[in-house]
Design a protein around this nucleic acid. Structure first.
Length: 741
DNA sequence: ATAGGGTTAG
């Protein structure tokens, strides 16, 4: 934003502090006015309006002093956002005095839109008012917050003209402005030139160095200080945390305790957050019990929220939610912290439930809330809630700073919930796309097997001058691997190193090896494994094992399975896959041998689970489960489906009976795989012709895939199914994956 | 008479 300032002409005798205007009554009379003393206890917007009404009645609102008090309250109150009200009152004041202008500037500078302070300032100056020493800290804060460096420099010029640089508040504000704009040299110059250095200006400089990543210089300034207060210590601790130096931050905390510096709320918040980020749960617990030992912080919401974050990040979700439940007062950050904690730990259902509780409690979600909830919707396929959130964002979160991140999250949610068109609409409506927006859309297309669309988007992205990163290439390569596009995959894989200078990582190799395996090029796949600089993981061996099954390569399968078992001995999948391969080859004694090993190991298996969202409720099914309240109807429907399937000529592939063991291991339940339960439930719960969207945590088995194709034809339903790697769109007897997966 | 600077939870 370019702001032009009217030239300032300063009369030589310009007083820095204005005298009170003659219309203002003497101070002690005002102090006894009841409506003014009420202001100090005013905690709600409603009571503010009442006090204002009272002031109008008594004529008090005609005094600049009383008005400035009212405006100050609006602008600084931590209990409500009174800025809009202050603005409306301000606009009615005919001749605001200096104090009132400054109060309004203060309000705008500390608002979410700090640039508006500069705009107001331009207006003030053009009306002929001059700034005083109190004005500049607000203006400089606005420049610091909005990172408007040029304006900051201009204001510095005006400070010099007015001779305000001798004021220590202005002095520190200048340092802070330059520091937070990354101009440490300028900040240092102001600091060195001044004789007004105190603990506050030193600390501003520390923060400057630290936020630029130069913790060593920050430390040097800290060491130079002759006296330090708790804020200086806090600033150093923050500096270390921001630069990943959690150990040093915690060392600093211990040191300040040794020096008998009493930590304050900020210290503890900082320290707890350092523990959370570094996973130092033991130290975190110590700090927690110290806080509980009545040091006067028991009621600090900030500390409580930091502790909730600590426990949920360190995996102790129960303690976190216990703390949350016991809060007598919760704010949006408390909710966001725990919701985010759940999402972080893959507890998506818990995240959505808590989100719903938050709405019921009357708390308004913000952008951070949505950035935690949308991934949960995406994982669960909860598209109704996702759509609701989309509307909410358009209505209430239009101008938040995270707008682009929110939209990217919406793209991901729609794509993962099966509505790739909605994802595209969000993408196309974006004015400002980040690299992750492009990536999310490319991934969406890849997931839906639409390799062409993914590559078209990639070239559009290049035309827009956006440089791809390693994530982009995972998207493109997985698009290839979902469609079996070996040559294109090879080409892209080469170009990422040669053209874009991006080193392939495990995931990129994984896609290539999957492609090679699928094409039966085992030798080349093994060569790639030899060549790659990273150790192959279970995913890679698993994809090769599947390729062996497809190509009937028993010998290789055995060696791959051994590798897989070595890396992931707890993963039953490798045994199951191998036994299936033996079964296909008719080697029944080997099947029995593997089964015996499996039984002996008592390995945990991941139960297959499918879900379908009906009227905003996500219904989950596991294999053969009869827990659903409409279980009877569902099984009735299943029987009907099986009859119709048989009439349509569907014959279950008996050679694949053991296939079910691969992922849904339970005797003879082939017919009642979880996705079939979800489909049956969908058929009886929706109007004819409604599209059904199923989300499954594992891969679809061949039999279910064949059956679903036929069901889509028999019942004239479009069925969209997401398995753990991709989407299948079933319609009129065919699947979008062309049976390649 | 009245105001302003540095650190602080998701």
């Amino acid at each position: 934003m370019a702001l032009s300032y009217p030239p300032l002409t300063v009369p030589s005798s310009h007083p820095l502090h204005f005298l009170p205007s003659s219309s203002d009554p003497p101070y002690d009379i005002l102090r006894t006015q009841p409506s003014l003393s009420l202001l100090s206890n005013c905690k709600t917007h409603q009571s503010l309006r009442e006090i204002h009404a009272q002031m109008i009645k008594t004529g008090l609102h005609n005094t600049n002093y009383a008005l400035s008090k009212l405006l100050e309250l609006c602008v600084v109150s931590p209990h409500f956002d009174g800025l809009p009200y202050a603005v409306s009152v301000f606009e009615t004041i005919q001749e605001p005095n200096q104090l009132i202008w400054n109060t309004m500037l203060r309000g705008h500078a500390s608002s979410s839109d700090p640039v508006s302070a500069l705009e107001l300032y331009v207006r003030m100056v053009s009306l002929g008012h001059l700034p005083n020493a109190y004005t500049f800290p607000f203006l400089l804060k606005s420049c610091a917050k909005s990172k408007t460096f040029e304006e900051g420099r201009q204001i510095h010029g005006q400070v010099m003209k007015l001779g305000c640089d001798l004021d220590r508040y202005v002095h520190t504000s200048l340092i802070s402005m330059y520091a937070r704009n990354g101009r440490l040299e300028d900040a240092r110059k102001v600091f060195d030139k001044s004789s007004q250095r105190d603990v506050v200006s030193y600390t501003a400089l520390i923060t400057g160095y630290a936020s630029r990543g130069d913790v060593r210089s920050a430390r040097k300034v800290f060491d130079e200080m002759s006296e330090r207060d708790v804020v200086s210590w806090n600033a150093m601790i923050t500096g270390y945390i921001e630069n990943g130096g959690y150990e040093e931050a915690l060392e600093f905390f211990k040191e300040m305790m040794r020096m008998n510096v009493r930590p304050d709320e900020g210290t503890l918040v900082n320290v707890v957050s350092a523990c959370a980020q570094s996973g130092s749960i033991e130290l975190g617990r110590q700090v927690h019990s110290w806080v509980d030992d009545d040091h006067g912080f028991g009621s600090s919401l900030k500390i409580a929220n930091a502790l909730i974050d600590l426990y949920s990040k360190c995996g102790d979700v129960d303690t976190a939610s216990g703390l949350f439940e016991r809060l007598s007062y919760k704010d949006v950050i408390s909710w966001n912290t725990l919701i985010g904690g759940y999402t972080h730990k893959n507890l998506y259902k818990e995240a959505l439930l808590l989100f719903q509780e938050m709405l019921r409690s009357g708390e308004s979600p913000d952008d951070v809330t949505m950035l935690s909830v949308l991934p949960a919707c995406a994982h669960l396929g909860a598209i109704d809630i996702g759509r609701w959130i989309h509307l909410y964002i358009d209505k209430k979160l239009k101008s938040v700073t995270n707008g682009s991140a929110l939209r990217t999250s919406l793209i991901d949610m729609y794509a993962k919930c099966g509505d790739i068109e909605a994802a595209q609409q969000v993408f196309n409506s974006m004015i400002c796309r980040s690299l992750s927006s492009w990536n999310a859309m490319i991934f969406g297309f890849a997931m839906h097997g639409r390799a062409n669309a993914a590559f078209d988007l990639f070239s559009r992205m290049r035309k827009n001058g956006v440089e791809p990163d390693d994530i982009t290439f995972i998207g493109l390569l997985s698009a290839c691997s979902h469609s079996g596009l070996l040559d294109l995959g090879r080409h892209i894989f080469k170009s990422m190193t040669h053209e874009y200078n991006i080193a392939p990582k495990l995931e990129h190799y994984g896609c290539m090896i999957d492609l090679l395996g699928h094409s039966g090029l085992f030798k080349e796949a093994e060569e790639m494994i030899q060549r790659m600089p990273v150790e192959p993981d279970g995913v890679i061996w698993c994809s090769l094992l599947k390729a062996c099954k497809k190509h009937g390569n028993l010998e290789l399968a055995e060696s791959f399975a051994q590798k897989l078992i070595k890396i992931e001995p707890e993963n039953s999948g490798s045994y199951v896959l191998l036994s299936n391969i033996y079964a296909t080859a008719g080697r029944w004694e080997d099947v029995a041998r593997i089964r015996a090993i499996l039984n002996g190991k008592r390995l945990k298996k991941v139960p297959g689970c499918s879900s379908i969202e009906i009227d905003s409720v996500v219904h989950e099914f596991i294999i053969g489960d009869k827990l659903h309240p409409q279980s009877k109807e569902i099984y009735g429907m299943l029987e009907e489906i099986d009859v119709l399937l048989e009439e349509a000529g569907f014959v279950p592939d008996t050679s694949e009976v053991l296939q079910e063991m691969e992922e849904e291991w339970k005797e003879g339940a082939l017919r009642h795989h979880s996705e079939k339960l979800a489909i049956a439930f969908g058929l009886i719960s929706t109007k004819p012709g409604t599209k059904l969207t199923i989300v499954k945590n594992l891969r679809v088995c061949r039999n279910c895939h064949e059956a679903t194709k036929l069901i889509s034809k028999i019942y004239k339903r479009e069925i969209v199914a997401r398995d753990r790697t991709r989407f299948h769109h079933f319609s009129d007897g065919v699947c979008s994956c062309c049976d390649y997966w």
